[in-house]
């Protein structure tokens, strides 16, 4: 069954692509909303990779990565919520929803 052999690999590849796409956007984009979205996309990439890892075993699906993904999603939701509210406060205080240019990490 080629499909069964291939499908976890596709999850692994897509996971990597999402992670790197998110990383690139996080570095390149200036608007804070896009940066926050980029972090979420990176997270989704890692979660997809974990699910792909879970599907590779001979003895059925490994439940541990699934549990890790649930935990990871909740952590990501929490961090995203804090980041969004912080972004609104930054916008209210500086008038801009982006970081000032002084930082080399921008």
């Amino acid at each position: 069954m080629t499909v069964d052999v291939i499908s976890p690999q596709i999850y692994l590849l897509c996971g990597v692509l999402l992670f790197v796409l998110g990383l690139h956007a996080l570095v390149v984009r200036r608007h804070l909303l896009l940066k926050i979205l980029a972090v979420n996309i990176m997270g989704s990439g890692v979660f997809m990779l974990l699910l792909g890892v879970a599907a590779r075993g001979e003895g059925g699906i490994d439940p541990v990565p699934h549990a890790l993904v649930i935990t990871g999603i909740v952590v990501a939701v929490s961090a995203t919520a804090v980041a969004l509210v912080l972004m609104l406060k930054v916008k209210a205080a500086t008038g801009l929803a982006r970081l000032p240019l002084s930082g080399p990490e921008d």
Binding site: Q9, L12, L13, G15, V16, F19, V20, L49, V53, A54, R56, G57, E58, G59, G60, I61, D62, P63, V64, P65
Partner: peptide, 17 residues
């Protein structure tokens, strides 16, 4: 780098057992 590494991950059952 990630693609090379990920496609080369050894098959192992993880903690299913």
């Amino acid at each position: 780098l990630l693609i090379v590494v990920v496609l080369d991950l050894p098959p192992q059952p993880g903690l299913a057992g």
